[in-house]
C-alpha cells in the first residue's frame, strides 16, 4: 500500500507539472462552493458558469466543486480546495467558511503560486491573512445582522431566530448576526434551536414556531435561516393567529418567498446576491490569468441586499432568469 501511495504521489506531482505546463494561456478555474441542490448555491453556480462562458471562449474552463452536504462543512471544503490543487487549477475561488479548518488548505493554494480569490465568507480579513487577491461577497453574520436591524427599525423589537440546523457554523452566524442586529437598534433577540428530527419537515418547523409563539406572546419578529424555513415560519405564524403582528425576515428567497412579500405575509428577505459572487470572482481571476488584469478595489461587497415590498417586482424578473 505504501508503494501505492508513493506511486500516487509521484503521479500527482507529474500531473500538476503537466497541467501547469500546458495551461499557459487558458485559465482552468476551480470554484469551491455549496452543494448543488442548495437553492442559494445553485445561483452562485449559475453566476460562476456564466462568467465561465467567457473563460471558455478564451480556451479555459470553470469547474464547480461542492460538498455532498454541510455536515462537516469546513473539513469537506478544505478537502475540495486540495482537490482543486491536485487537478491542476490555474486559479481557485473558495469561501473561508471555517477558518481553522480551511486556512491551511488556502495556504497551500497560495504556496503553490495559484491565484486565489476568497468569496462568500471570510471577508477581506481572510483574504489579507491568506495572501489572496481579493474578497468578493457578503457574509453570513452581516446577512443576519441586516435582518435584525430591518425588523427592529420596523418596530418589531423582540425577535427569535429559528435555527433548524443547530451546530452548523454558517447557520449559527446568521442567528448571532440577527440577535446582534436587533439588539443594535434597541430590541432583544433569542435563538430557538430545533431538534434534528425536525429538519427538513416543513410541518414540524411550522408547528414548533407556532408553539413557541403561543408560549412566548411577547415575540413579534422571526428570522428564518433559509427560504424553506421562511415559508414554514409564515405558515406557523398564520396558524398561531398572529399574522400581521409577528413579522418574518429570512435569508435568501425563491418565487414563493417573493409571493409572500408581495402578499404582505413576509416582511423581507435578505439577498446575498449570490449570482454576483460567482460571476465576479471568476471574472476577476479569468482576466488576471489570461491578461494580467487586476482590480484595485479590495473587498468587493455583493450584499446583503434587502428585498421587501418596495423592490419585489424587479427581483421577480431576476428570479425568472435564474440569476437571483
Amino acid at each position: 500500500m505504501t508503494k501505492f501511495s508513493r506511486l500516487a504521489a509521484t503521479a500527482s506531482t507529474a500531473a500538476i507539472a503537466v497541467c501547469a505546463a500546458t495551461a499557459v494561456l487558458a485559465a482552468d478555474i476551480f470554484v469551491v462552493g455549496g452543494k448543488p441542490d442548495d437553492p442559494f448555491w445553485s445561483i452562485v453556480k449559475r453566476g460562476a458558469e456564466d462568467a465561465g462562458i467567457v473563460a471558455e471562449a478564451q480556451g479555459g474552463s470553470v469547474t464547480w466543486l461542492g460538498p455532498q452536504n454541510y455536515d462537516n462543512l469546513g473539513v469537506d471544503a478544505a478537502e475540495l480546495i486540495r482537490q482543486a490543487i491536485d487537478q491542476g487549477a490555474d486559479a481557485i475561488v473558495g469561501p473561508d467558511w471555517v477558518p481553522e479548518a480551511m486556512d491551511p488548505a488556502f495556504q497551500a493554494v497560495v504556496d503553490a503560486g495559484i491565484p486565489l480569490v476568497i468569496y462568500n465568507a471570510g471577508g477581506i480579513e481572510a483574504a489579507d491573512r491568506l495572501g489572496a487577491m481579493n474578497y468578493v461577497g457578503s457574509n453570513d453574520y452581516k446577512g443576519g445582522f441586516a435582518g435584525g436591524e430591518y425588523l427592529g427599525n420596523k418596530g418589531k423589537q423582540n425577535g427569535v431566530c429559528l435555527n433548524t440546523l443547530p451546530g452548523a457554523a454558517n447557520i449559527e452566524a446568521f442567528c448571532s448576526g440577527f440577535v446582534d442586529g436587533i439588539v443594535s437598534v434597541g430590541g432583544e433577540g433569542s435563538v430557538l434551536p430545533l431538534p434534528a428530527t425536525s429538519f427538513g419537515s416543513a410541518t414540524a418547523v411550522a408547528q414548533a414556531l407556532r408553539a413557541h409563539l403561543l408560549q412566548h406572546p411577547e415575540i413579534n419578529a422571526v428570522f428564518a435561516i433559509g427560504n424553506v424555513d421562511a415559508n414554514s415560519a409564515v405558515s406557523g405564524i398564520a396558524q398561531a393567529g398572529k399574522a400581521g403582528t409577528v413579522e418574518v425576515c429570512g435569508m435568501n428567497f425563491d418565487e414563493s418567498i417573493l409571493q409572500n412579500i408581495k402578499d404582505g405575509t413576509q416582511a423581507c428577505a435578505i439577498d446575498q446576491q449570490g449570482y454576483h459572487q460567482g460571476y465576479l470572482a471568476v471574472s476577476i481571476l479569468n482576466s488576471y490569468v489570461n491578461y494580467g488584469l487586476t482590480v484595485p478595489t479590495r473587498e468587493i461587497l455583493t450584499g446583503p441586499g434587502i428585498v421587501d415590498s418596495s423592490n419585489v417586482d424587479a427581483t421577480m424578473a431576476g428570479v425568472a432568469e435564474g440569476t437571483r
Binding site: D71, N72, G74, V75, V98, E100, A101
Partner: peptide, 16 residues
C-alpha cells in the same frame, strides 16, 4: 483526528 487536523470541531455532522 478530524478535530486535531482541522483545528476545530462543530456539533453537526456525521449523519451521512
Amino acid at each position: 483526528c478530524g478535530a486535531i487536523l482541522f483545528n476545530s470541531a462543530q456539533v453537526s455532522g456525521g449523519m451521512n
